[in-house]
Design a binder for these strands. Structure first.
Lengths: 134, 134
DNA sequence: AGAGTGTACTAACTTTTGGAAAGTGCAAAC
DNA sequence: GTTTGCACTTTCCAAAAGTTAGTACACTCT
């Protein structure tokens, strides 16, 4: 049975490793942790959104980058795209079950970061002060 | 008592919001979720590493980007830098307690992604096939 | 009725960023 | 005594991101 998928080694373990330069998992990780990926995923965790609604929620994205980001996430199976061929067009984006699981982790991360921002701001000030006097 | 810090609103809630374009929390989030930030944090979660050891672990980083990434993480208080003024120089990087907490979330995310890579690869293939026939 | 706005993009162009290579200054190994 | 390693910084060019304009049509406002 040489039917075994290529992504397990001789011991049956997954061979994906983000620390390996050429591993495809690194690209996938970048899609979801990238500047806009993480925000798009988090925004969609609250529910389905249309393209421009998403664009307003993720303030600062350009249309080009949002489209590009969503295409990557759709290709990886995190996001579902449903287009109605009406005029004007209506396209709805939502998370797949897999995407929802991952988005939950991203939300936890976002909350962690927002929560420790006071310390981060203080840390920044100390670092800058220390460097200025050197 | 106008001693109240600027980062709480009139109801005592934190005002940091990564969805707001100008919020400093967005920059901080990018430092840890950026291409190299997440890998550096994850690598340091296993223990203290020197600059070049870290560079070997995070395969593919240029020296410039690793230095830049570590400086941002140190400034934000996620990473501690300890330099011994010997010749040749010896600089050790480790996570701060705060950094360790955040790194744990990043590790969970990395494991989640590595674990679903088989589905991702399949999803990629379907997406590409669907697009090719259109 | 004609102008303006909204929809979901793509294409062309410009600016910013990332990476590759070389420089630094000295010491230990070969 | 030449190569190697250390922890970076600087310079330069390619790649990525952002900005702007265009599409084709419908609905709203005046």
């Amino acid at each position: 049975m040489s039917e075994a998928p290529e992504w397990v080694d001789e011991h049956g373990r997954l061979v994906f490793d983000v620390f390996a330069q050429a591993c495809t998992s690194r690209a996938t990780l970048e899609h979801i942790t990238g500047r806009w990926g993480i925000l798009a995923m988090a925004a969609l965790h609250d529910g389905t959104l249309r393209f421009n609604a998403l664009r307003r929620r993720v303030s600062g994205v350009s249309e080009k980058m949002l489209a590009q980001t969503l295409q990557a996430l759709e290709r990886d199976g995190f996001v579902h795209r449903e287009a109605q061929p009406t005029i004007p067009p209506k396209v709805e984006y939502s998370l797949t079950p897999r995407g929802r699981r991952t988005a939950a982790l991203l939300l936890a991360l976002i909350e962690d970061v927002e929560g420790q921002m006071p310390e981060v701001v203080e840390s920044n000030a100390e670092y800058d002060a220390a460097k200025r006097e050197s």
